[in-house]
């Protein structure tokens, strides 16, 4: 489903942000990508959806190499939830925004309608359907942003800091929703408790390299390793 082999990436020549990244992920997995600020987590996520294509190495998503030529196919199979939901929601109502993706793939209108309804049901956000996007609270915006991605029925969902700025109730709700989604999920977050609740596998990045890749509990209980990488134990383990 996702294959990364010896991936290198630099914004400026000679200044590598990511180096020798190797990662294999299968359908249904839930992977947390953690690391300190500015370590390259968001860059890695953006590479996976083809926002940057000038990398070195192998990067295959849904059996296709991430190249400019394959972008349509890749974006049909990968959904990306932005850190800032305001960037994701740009149409007048939630309904229009959720329907934006399916309509771009020229699906029949009854299919678009079905997908919008199902996506909103999955995030328990049916009541948001006719609401204006600017009137939503932070938690509602996050749910609507996830629904916009679910409506595209992607095989892979990538989420950048999904729990950021959510209150405890909305955070708990989001954990519940994420655990109900069957697609391959890749979640970046500084909220290690959130990673513990939603991901069974964790990848730890440090200085642009993968330092550890394994079961979430094993990595997040290793205080020494986390400390070396500029992180701290999850609150519940402190």
């Amino acid at each position: 489903m996702l294959k990364i082999e010896h991936l290198h990436f630099a914004y400026e020549k000679g200044e590598e942000v990511l180096s020798d990244i190797c990662l294999l992920a299968q359908a249904g997995e839930s992977i947390g990508v953690i690391g300190a600020n500015g370590i390259g987590k968001s860059t890695l996520m953006k590479l996976m959806v083809g926002l940057y294509t000038d990398y070195e190495g192998v990067l295959e998503v849904a059996h296709h190499a991430v190249t400019t030529k394959n972008l349509d196919h890749i974006r049909e199979h990968v959904g990306y939830v932005f850190q800032d939901s305001d960037s994701q929601l740009f149409l007048s109502t939630v309904e229009e925004d959720v329907a934006f993706g399916p309509r771009n793939y020229r699906l029949p209108e009854d299919e678009v309608e079905r997908r919008v309804t199902e996506a909103l049901q999955k995030v328990h956000g049916e009541h948001l359907r006719k609401k204006h996007t600017y009137k939503l609270s932070g938690g509602e915006k996050k749910l609507a942003a996830i629904a916009t991605i679910l409506a595209m029925e992607p095989d892979i969902i990538i989420m950048d800091e999904p729990s950021l700025a959510l209150d405890p109730k909305n955070r708990r709700n989001l954990i519940h929703i994420l655990n109900e989604i069957d697609s391959l999920k890749i979640v970046t977050s500084h909220d290690l408790d959130f990673i513990m609740d939603t991901c069974e596998r964790t990848v730890l990045l440090y200085e642009g390299k993968i330092i550890a890749d394994g079961p979430t509990e094993e990595i997040l209980k290793n205080g020494k390793l986390l400390d070396e990488c500029g992180l701290e134990l999850p609150l519940r383990l402190q």
Partner: peptide, 8 residues
């Protein structure tokens, strides 16, 4: 970017 990622 968000538009592009949704097939725009």
């Amino acid at each position: 970017e968000s538009m592009l990622l949704r097939g725009f």
